[in-house]
Design a protein around this nucleic acid. Structure first.
Lengths: 242, 242
DNA sequence: AAGGAATAGTTGTCTATACCAATTGATATG
DNA sequence: CATATCAATTGGTATAGACAACTATTCCTT
């Protein structure tokens, strides 16, 4: 399990091992871990090395320590990861609110990028871009009208079928890209005729416009999402820790 | 400078000392710090203890290390601190947008807490609460209508004069309390008669409602702020890193 | 002049040990 | 029965030293 003659540091190996146990569910939130001294003896390594592994996981939000009692699996997932989840996936957002998410495809096209979209996606003007329009449902009622823009050269093999599943997990898992950060712009507006029709509200009723740009670690834009949420059904919530 | 027989841990003393140097500007972004072994010899402490101090500051975003080269003062302030700044102070928010912030007091009262307010401030119902209503200006034009609620037992000595300065810095600097986290709820709505009057817009025009709850480290609520922003002038922007 | 080897200085990892501080539960005591 | 004390167990702090990995410089060889 732990290789002492590996170029990978022991504390790192141990840390990853514990992370896996947590993610597999073998260690559940609130569980107490074996004591530092136990790990040290178990793997025949120094207690300080165990502490180095623990400390890193504490900093990442996986564990918390209580002097005299023990080290425990944290109740919540790491805060940064949590924040991004809420931002990236409509599905998970709705599930967190106790509602059943759904989706209804309005249109699925490849269009030439307008200058504004091209700029935001970091591609050439008139370059091919997927434009995916969907009505987002919560408990079978319209919650938002969402339009995704993704460079067709960047993400290949997108089909209507995939769109019915999670676009976000397709990007992340199938293409092996890891989204590192996102910007959101939120503004308040009133529903246009078109929005009103799709959202089943009156024209002029308040809506919340959310524009999200997501990026890879190196700053490459991944996608652009413009959404109109029904103000009577949706509140945007955010918690900033520390 | 470093007291070895203090109940305060040496690594913590050293960390705070270095933080002060950075905040005073004696150590500037990009500067290289004395080597770990130098610190160890300078204060007659173990190199591992120095490392513990450094590691903490690295995690907090004050320093970054490069193996073989040295330890450097980070270029930017810690991101978490940065994020909270933008959230907590209307003044700083407007300045960041290149606008001149202003304030116009509407009312300043001590009222008995409603059950909702009492619950959010963690006090007894009907307990005394400052209710501070202000029109927030940007470039001399109304931007938002803001109402603060603060427990009068918790924060004493609040006067109308103080309100004209920064309420946030009063709490933090004068009272020595450090705000650790905040939750925000953002929703979209349309202006009531009253809001329209204060914001100089038409009733029925879109507004953005922002409710912010701020807390100390131990979870004690500090204040509750309800704001109505003019949708034609204000967009809420947020960046999530990692 | 170019390239490589040696070297010194840096942070990174790891060990083994010691004692302190907080919590818990068992035990003795009133 | 309540309470004080003690012992065991836990994480927290600190030491001293060793070697690895990486960087930059210097100096030597070609």
């Amino acid at each position: 399990m732990i290789k002492k003659n590996s170029p990978i540091p022991i504390y790192y190996q141990l840390g990853e091992t514990i992370k896996e146990l947590i993610e597999k569910g073998e260690l559940k939130p609130g569980d107490v871990l074996p004591a530092e001294r136990e790990y040290a003896e178990m793997f025949q390594i120094s207690r300080m090395t165990v502490r180095q592994a623990f400390t890193q996981l504490v900093n990442e939000g996986y564990l918390h320590r209580i002097q005299g009692k023990g080290t425990f699996v944290a109740e919540r997932k790491p805060k940064i990861e949590q924040a991004l989840q809420g931002l990236t996936s409509f599905t998970e957002d709705m599930e967190a609110r106790g509602m059943k998410p759904g989706s209804q495809l309005v249109s699925f096209e490849i269009i030439p990028a307008t200058s504004l979209i091209a700029k935001q996606l970091g591609i050439q003007e008139y370059g091919p871009v997927y434009e995916i329009k969907r009505i987002r449902l919560a408990d079978h009622m319209p919650m938002a009208l969402e339009t995704n823009y993704i460079s067709a050269n960047f993400i290949k093999g997108l089909t209507e079928k995939i769109v019915n599943q999670s676009l976000y997990s397709f990007i992340q898992e199938q293409l092996g890209m890891k989204i590192s950060h996102a910007t959101q712009v939120i503004e308040s507006s009133i529903a246009s005729e078109l929005e009103a029709k799709y959202l089943q509200i009156q024209p002029g009723a308040p809506v919340m416009l959310i524009q999200r740009n997501t990026f890879l670690k190196d700053g490459t834009p991944v996608e652009l999402v413009k959404s109109s949420y029904r103000a009577d059904r949706y509140k945007f919530m955010i918690q900033l820790n520390r």
